[in-house]
Amino acid sequence: MHALIENRYGVTYHPTYFARKLRSLGMHYAKPRPMDPRSPDDAEEVFAERLSQALGEDEASDEEDPVILGFFR
């Protein structure tokens, strides 16, 4: 964000002031992480297991229509 503002508008802000300015606008300053460091090593396996349990895929089902699941931001 700092580089974008500097390149586009030719101004620089101190990181503390920049974070304060974002908060005043209702935004938050955070560094992106490729993975949550608190997540377990087998997080994808746990997710797949819980999802199949939630959808009832462990039990036999007479339904022929598939379940479609979507996520929105």
Rank of each mutant, 00 (worst) to 15 (best):
E49C: 07
R8K: 13
E45W: 04
E44R: 12
N7S: 13
P34L: 07
E49V: 13
Y13R: 08
E64N: 08
E6D: 11
L55A: 06
R8W: 03
M1T: 14
F47K: 13
L55W: 00
V46W: 00
R50K: 15
L25S: 13
E57M: 08
V11G: 00
P32C: 01
D36F: 06
L25F: 14
L51V: 10
L25E: 14
D36L: 09
P32D: 00
H14S: 13
D62W: 03
E64Q: 10
F18N: 05
S61T: 15
R50Y: 04
H2N: 04
L69W: 01
H2Q: 07
I68P: 00
R23G: 06
M27A: 15
A19W: 01
D65Y: 04
P34K: 11
R20T: 15
R73T: 06
Y29R: 15
R33S: 11
H2C: 00
L69S: 03
R73V: 04
S24V: 09
E49F: 07
L55H: 03
E49D: 13
L55C: 08
A48H: 09
N7T: 10
A3E: 12
A54Q: 07
E59D: 08
A43G: 04
I68T: 11
D36Y: 08
Q53P: 01
L22P: 02
F47A: 14
E44M: 10
A54S: 11
L51G: 03
A3M: 00
F72W: 02
H28S: 15
Y29L: 12
T16Y: 02
P40Q: 09
A60C: 00
N7A: 10
I5W: 03
Q53C: 01
G70C: 02
R23E: 14
L69G: 02
R73Y: 03
Y29G: 07
A60R: 09
E64H: 08
S61K: 11
T16A: 05
D65M: 06
P37W: 02
D42I: 03
A19I: 05
E59A: 09
K21M: 13
E6A: 09
A19D: 08
M1W: 09
Q53M: 04
A30T: 15
V67W: 00
Y29M: 11
P34I: 06
I68S: 04
A60P: 04
P40F: 00
A54N: 05
D65K: 13
S39V: 08
A54V: 03
A43M: 08
D36G: 05
S39G: 06
M1G: 14
E6S: 11
D58R: 12
T12Y: 00
L69A: 02
G70R: 07
D41P: 09
H14N: 15
L51P: 02
V67S: 02
T16G: 05
D58V: 06
P34Y: 05
M35G: 05
F18M: 13
R8Q: 08
G70Q: 05
L55N: 07
D41V: 12
H28L: 09
R20Y: 14
M1F: 12
I68Q: 03
D58I: 04
L69D: 01
D42N: 15
T16K: 14
K31P: 03
S52T: 10
D65E: 13
I5A: 05
P34Q: 06
L51C: 03
R33I: 10
F72M: 01
R23N: 15
R8H: 10
P15G: 04
D58Y: 10
K21A: 14
I5V: 15
S52G: 03
N7P: 05
E45G: 15
